[in-house]
Design a protein around this nucleic acid. Sequence first.
DNA 1: AAGTGGTCTAGACCACTTT
DNA 2: AAGTGGTCTAGACCACTTA
Lengths: 247, 247
Amino acid sequence: MTAPGLRLAVDRRSPVPLYHQVASQLADAIDDGTLPAGAKLDNEIALADQLGLSRPTMRKAIEELVGKGLLVRKRGVGTQVVHGRVRRELELTSLYDDLAAAGKRPTTTVLRNEIVPAPTEVAEELGLAAGGEVRLLERLRQADDAPLALLRNWLPADLVDADSEALESRGLYELLREGGTHLRIARQRIGARGASATEADLLGVVAGEALLTMQRTAYADSGRAVEYGDHCYRPDSYSFEVTVVER
Amino acid sequence: MTAPGLRLAVDRRSPVPLYHQVASQLADAIDDGTLPAGAKLDNEIALADQLGLSRPTMRKAIEELVGKGLLVRKRGVGTQVVHGRVRRELELTSLYDDLAAAGKRPTTTVLRNEIVPAPTEVAEELGLAAGGEVRLLERLRQADDAPLALLRNWLPADLVDADSEALESRGLYELLREGGTHLRIARQRIGARGASATEADLLGVVAGEALLTMQRTAYADSGRAVEYGDHCYRPDSYSFEVTVVER
DNA sequence: AAGTGGTCTAGACCACTTT
DNA sequence: AAGTGGTCTAGACCACTTA
């Protein structure tokens, strides 16, 4: 039951970890149909031998794809490709990156960009003293000139220069990365509510119409909270994809 | 910088994997404040020594918590507890389980429970021939007698007995588990839209009012799609929590 | 220079499923 | 009985960060 056209090979001179090289090649084979839905993989030891790898390394490659929802394993049975087509996953990217990757032309209008005392909830989320200074950003995001999302963000005031011009051309996350802040974890709450008059006006909908909402707190690799966001999206243009894997 | 009150120990006679024992104890210590936000853990080798474990096993315990968003690691620096309080995570559970765990009293009314030819989209999601037979379930879920969600599910017709009485008392996922079907992966799309007249009536809202929606395809450990769901929720009573970790 | 996590190896034994 | 994934060990070397 092994796929015939499947060719795997690793490059030991590459800085890319061996397990990730293998995982990428397997993911590509699943994407392009070389490994069709339901296909059974050789067992871990055989695969490791074929590639000249140790079993733990081969196993880690498989684990990466199990975590992404592309493969399922069953003890005593084997490893198979999951049925069903794969959709884009929810990852730790900004909406700006998402749109650029999807080939849309994202534009941003900065509505507010100012230093304000932190509202109670924001201070709590960011782990700051109440009333401490934070930068408030309010932006309108458009894709191909159609309004798509209204983004409000609060960040520790010293974290980023955030001149409005850079924000309009590059997106907040990219600016943070340039400033040496690498986001690692985001906790998001996704919900829905009716649009307020202001929101409706900016997003080009009728007041009270359904909006998709997200509140997000993002943490850097230092463990500190560096962003709290309160966003709303036009639900006809945006949705969230999540893949959940049983632990 | 090691936490003083932290006491870790493993039971080698337990069937619970050692790495999971350690991960649970660390998670508890983070929950109850023994390991406060920002606390730095000893390095992996020292921790492994203290517990009489090998480094890979200790590492796997830490990896489990990094994946849950409780810890962050930084090469050359160390491992720390993430700042910010932890919220309940989105897992592969049914809404019924969610509510029961939250101490609510969930009740279910089965509105439809019949065998129908599969609509095109459903057949595609489940990997069945178009027009093949599927079971259509339509249920109204309430928590403490307040309407909360309207759930429509399609399943392969042979998969579950699904008598309506059992569905009202136990929830679909539990019935599937009892029938030997173990869900492993779910792909979910979360969005929003206005309520139709029928939905509004059932959920006790006004037509056009915002609803939170989810379409889900769930896969068993056999890799086969076993459930397609199209759900809508009252957004004042339900939201989704997602933790995203940078790969 | 010292300390950390990141990767990798070559084994071992076990639990579970299928034949 | 045979084959699979699940767990665990005891090392090794490397890349990165901080002092």
